[in-house]
Amino acid sequence: MSATMTDAAPTNHSAARLASPRRDLSWTAAPLVGLLGLAAFWVFPEDLGLMTRIAAAALYVLSLDLVLGYCGIATLGQAAMFGTGAYAAGIAAVHLVNDPLILLVIGGVAGGAIALATGALILHARGLTLLMLTIAVTQIVQEVANKARDWTGGSDGLSGVDPAPVFGLFRFDMVGRTSYLFALAVLVVGMLVARRIVRSPFGLACRGVKEDPVRVAALGGSPRAYLVTMYAVAGMFAGVAGALTAVSSGIVGLDSVSFSWSAEALVMLVLGGTGRLYGAVIGTVAFMAAHHILAATDPFHWMAFIGLFLMGVVLFLPGGIAAGLERLRDRLTGTKSGSAPGGRA
């Protein structure tokens, strides 16, 4: 069984099921996340700080899904956009403005700008070369942030981000209620916007590029233009996520633009499942919650756990948690589809 699972391309399989004539329920994802998030607000009032970080990280992982899940760009550099957004918002908060929404916009613009600039430069490459280029971009951004101590605080981190009340009404309290609800709202809006984009003509073209760029060119399209545009759009999402982290936590550190934060985004996305948007949220919640529990005892336990889990997902569950859930649902509802185990040649 495992062999047939590994052979099948996970993406084909995900799109095949989207296309099946069953009722399309994907619009429920964002409202559901909102409702569950609100429920969590009442159930876990002690963990608002963690949940706020999860919400912001979910938006960041969502940005990676736009790039990887819908364009097929394998990147280890998404943190460059996240970190740039976080620092831009943080610096603006210290020196210029403190309205949280404006700070998010600043973060988004900064993330989008760096993605556009670097994407135009590097997206001609493929495979290992592209991976290296995305890593190199992240390291350079980190190095710049490290050296520009006057602005970023260097390795001490940037602190003193003190945002004004949201809409002038809701103060950021000590317990973190406002932070959490604000982050949750931004995540839900982000999911709605992302869903809109992937279902637009542009999203359709990007899916085409992911499958066969040459065929897209034969339809008169420019594959590279789509890739760069989506990279920039995803950069804006990542930048907003970075700004959200800066606003809700009050600090920005060098780890927000590190290689490992890029790699973790990839891990979270693949855990959840690519090319679905809500898979990004599932993966982030699972990863960060497990991290919270396991890493509290010993960070190395956490590494062993996540390492084994990752290998298991690649070998046995190519579509991530979301695909597993869908398969389970199909089992339960008796829906027949090509993705049932053994159903594929």
Binding site: R196, I197, R199, S200, P201, F202, G203, L204, A205, G208, V216, L219, G220, G221, Y226, T229, V233
Partner: peptide, 17 residues
């Protein structure tokens, strides 16, 4: 996709197909 590409409407990010 072929029709949208022909009409150069593929850079509409917020339209609905």
């Amino acid at each position: 996709l072929a029709i949208l590409q022909r009409d150069r409407r593929t850079f509409r990010l917020f339209a609905s197909v």
